[in-house]
Nucleic acid binder design. Structure first.
Length: 773
DNA sequence: ACCGAATCACTTTTT
DNA sequence: GTGATTCGGT
């Protein structure tokens, strides 16, 4: 047990305490992962069976890293047996095992968002509803997801008048029909979406007490990472599993809860856990090992403004360090130039490109950094972005595999049925789809009987032959699913698909790239086939007799839950400055961090209207600053192109919330004239001549300048110009006419008559109104 | 079936 | 401004 000496007092207590439910509040950089991994190692050393430990994370990456670290502390064979993974992957394993209870097959397909949207789009079109505005697949899916995360089925929805009137209010009274049809289609396809994995697990636990009992006994100790980001559905499943033995440890930081827009509920960590586990013990990891004192102080000051939080005092014994650097910029181009220069100066001082990260609120902001960094020849890499497994050509190949495994998977089938082209046009497909839909059989079943139905379907001999051939091949592959190893079978299917030939027949750059990606996929399959089965259930439960080799079906199980961050470790590649959204930066750390675009309307986002949303933006700011180990650079621009038009904005209110003595304003621009347009220059208080480090007086002036501006202008500068009689547009309420304006800015209100929603009173500084006439 | 023009929409996104 | 999607012509 000597590894415990690596821990500080609270960390060690958090590791050793197992008597009752435990909540560990882990401030940024306080060694959270260390506590989790050591705790699991500790449990194992104490004699707990590794397969009786369940550790739930939010990313595969986090799970993988933890597994690796545990393997250094205990026998690696034990480390592998721990049930460690994302909520989704662990629950998917449970659901496959228990599939028949909820009348699914164990080989069900997991649909990604693209598949889901496609289904919704088809449904909306079939129902003759408007898919441009009211029933946009993205927003319908968002609402469905929201409901599922709160365990509200279509049937349950119909018992909740609030929800019904919400949709009626938005002229979406058929929403529940779409929801029903969507669930039905998923079921017919033998598929679940991401949220279903959580939803059905809860259903399973609710409706099958023996199943719940089984998993309560299996998971004798439960750990949850990033607890602040759990949604209702995730929390309930944990609560159910831990209900009897109460052996549960949740770790998280309420100050870093930044995913509420995806259903995460900060109250799980702030209040719910305490209420539901009254016997719990609470530890707070408050020593920060990551950042300088100034960074820690600044971040404490940021988060202090939030009301909804668990009190804590994060401190560090690290050196004081430098102040936070604040760059005032004229526009986004200027911002990128200043940062590029600062990067080069850091490089000159011996830093490495990989020591630096550029953080931004929205993905669109990355573009200008790319352009400017290319000019300065600064190597960079955008972290995140499209996953390898989301690329069209990869998804197409996977669609072939999906159909072989689960021929009911109609999304996959439709994707490949005529790609590459094999002479089945829209008309034929429509005839078949309609027939299948009307007769409630799957499209694949119909295709298997195409010869018999040829006359009824009114399709030609040629097409009938094509379909027969296609079906025969798929069935042949399916029969080999457990006879052939994954590599052999995958290559045969790929060959049959003709996708590579198709792309090679017109070798554009893009197509060559696609062929390479497909080869990369085969490469990944080969790597997978060399791995051994390490899932804990093989040790604990009777598995169906599996062949000695790895199967295609097993590969597909793993692939469906991978994301872009799970691919080759971008962080370990040749030194590059990393560009990413603040959301993606959570959990990472860098010596030098640039937090960019600190402007009202961008960060905090103009979409935020309510106090809790501002608090979430503030937590986002907290996350961004606490990524920095040595130095944090902040920047804002006066003018920025957003959505194709130039916007003037004022510095973010978050800048004012920082203690001014911790900030050094930088205007390191010997040739600043080239960036500053003359009309701005004279009135530009931010660009008073200063050099490297500011004198205190200048600091005050900047501080006040930002303060005055942001308080006066808040998010919607343009609203100042509104007058009685103007026709405006509002995101939620639509078109309306201003009947009256009252009060003095910034407290002025408008009474607006909306065409669709009648009269409303709006506070101008918050309401996002766009003048149309 | 495919290409180019027109149109649109647009925070964040661990699964 | 950009990228994705859809539509309409060949």
């Amino acid at each position: 047990m000597d590894f415990l000496k690596d821990l500080n007092e609270v960390q060690r207590q958090s590791v050793e305490y197992i008597d009752s439910p435990l909540m560990v509040i882990a401030g940024a950089g306080s060694g959270k992962t260390r506590v989790l991994t050591y705790k699991i190692a500790y449990l194992i050393q104490k004699g707990w069976k590794p397969y009786n430990i369940l550790a739930l994370t939010f990313t595969n990456k986090a799970a993988g890293e933890m597994k690796e670290r545990i393997a250094h502390l205990v026998n690696p064979a034990y480390a592998r047996q721990v049930w460690m993974g994302t909520f989704h992957s662990v629950f998917a394993k449970i659901l496959r095992r228990e599939a028949e209870k909820i009348s699914y097959t164990p080989t069900f397909t997991i649909y990604d968002t693209e598949d889901s949207k496609k289904i919704i789009s088809d449904i909306v079109k079939r129902m003759n509803l408007d898919d441009k505005n009211i029933y946009k697949p993205t927003s319908v899916l968002a609402r469905i997801s929201d409901l599922k995360n709160n365990l509200i089925s279509p049937a349950k929805y119909e018992t909740l008048p609030n929800l019904i009137s919400e949709d009626r209010y938005r002229k979406r009274e058929h929403f529940v029909d779409v929801y029903k049809a969507y669930q039905k289609q998923l079921y017919r396809n033998g598929a679940m979406d991401f949220d279903d994995l959580l939803y059905y697990t809860n259903v399973l636990f609710r409706d099958f007490p023996d199943v719940l009992d089984k998993y309560q006994n299996l998971f004798q100790y439960i750990l949850v990472d990033e607890f602040q980001d759990t949604n209702f559905s995730q929390y309930l499943s944990v609560k159910q599993l831990a209900k009897n033995h109460q052996k549960v440890c949740v770790v998280g930081d309420d100050a870093q809860s930044i995913y509420s827009f995806r259903g995460a509920d900060i109250n799980n960590i702030v209040t719910n856990f305490r209420k539901d586990f009254p016997q719990h013990k609470l530890f707070k990891l408050e020593e920060n090992y990551r950042s300088t004192q100034h960074i820690v102080e600044a971040s404490n000051a940021i988060i202090k403004k939030n009301k909804n939080q668990i009190p804590k005092k994060v401190y560090t014994n690290n050196s004081k360090g430098e102040p936070l650097f604040l760059y005032a910029c004229t526009d986004e181009n200027h911002e990128a130039h200043i940062i590029a220069k600062e990067i080069l100066s850091l490089i000159n001082k011996g830093a490495d490109y990989s020591d630096m990260a550029i953080l931004y609120r929205t993905n669109a902001q990355s573009r200008v950094f790319e352009d400017v960094f290319r000019k300065y020849q600064i190597p960079y890499k955008i972290y995140g972005g499209m996953s390898f497994y989301q690329r069209k050509e990869v998804k197409d190949v996977l669609a072939y595999f999906r159909v072989v495994i689960n021929s009911k998977d109609e999304e996959a089938l439709m994707r490949i049925i005529n790609f590459p082209t094999r002479g089945l046009g829209d008309t034929t497909l429509e005839k078949m789809s309609n027939y299948a839909y009307d007769n409630q059989i799957s499209l694949f079943e119909l295709m298997q009987n195409v010869r018999l139905l040829q006359n009824e379907l009114n399709i030609s001999n040629k097409q009938t032959a094509v379909i027969e051939n296609f079906v025969a091949n798929i069935v042949g592959f399916r029969n080999n699913l457990f006879e052939q190893d994954v590599v052999t079978l995958a290559k045969e299917i790929l060959d049959f698909s003709g996708i590579i030939k198709y792309y090679e027949s017109s070798p554009t750059e893009e197509n060559k790239e696609r062929v390479l990606n497909i080869k990369e996929l085969i490469n990944a399959i080969e790597q997978f086939s060399a791995t051994e089965r390490t899932l804990p259930e093989e040790q604990t439960m009777n598995e169906n007799q599996l062949p000695a080799f790895r199967t295609l079906e097993e590969f597909m199980r793993e692939v469906s839950l991978l994301t872009s961050q799970d691919e080759k470790d971008v962080l370990n590649m040749s030194p590059k400055v990393l560009l990413m959204t603040i959301h993606l930066s959570k959990g990472l750390e860098f010596p030098y961090v640039f937090v960019t675009g600190l402007e009202e309307g961008l960060f905090p986002s103009s979409r935020t209207m309510f106090e809790d949303e501002i608090e979430e933006e503030r937590r986002l700011f907290y996350v961004s600053v606490t990524r920095a180990k040595i130095r944090a650079h902040l920047s804002f621009a006066q003018k920025r192109f957003i959505n194709g038009r130039s916007n003037y904005s004022v510095p973010s209110r978050f800048i004012n919330e920082l203690p001014q003595e911790l900030i050094s304003v930088q205007t390191d621009m010997p040739n600043r004239r080239q960036y500053i347009s003359s009309d701005l220059d004279s009135s530009n208080i931010y660009f008073e001549k200063t050099n490297k480090t500011e004198s205190p007086r200048k600091l005050v002036s900047v501080h006040q300048a930002t303060k005055n501006n942001s308080e006066a202008n808040y998010s919607a500068v343009q609203n100042k110009d509104l007058e009685k009689g103007h026709v405006i547009y509002h995101d939620k309420f639509g078109k309306g006419t201003i009947l009256e304006i009252s009060g003095k800015w910034p407290d002025s209100k408008a009474i607006v008559h909306f065409d669709a929603h009648g009269q409303k009173v709006l506070l101008l500084k918050f309401a996002k109104l766009e003048k149309i006439q």
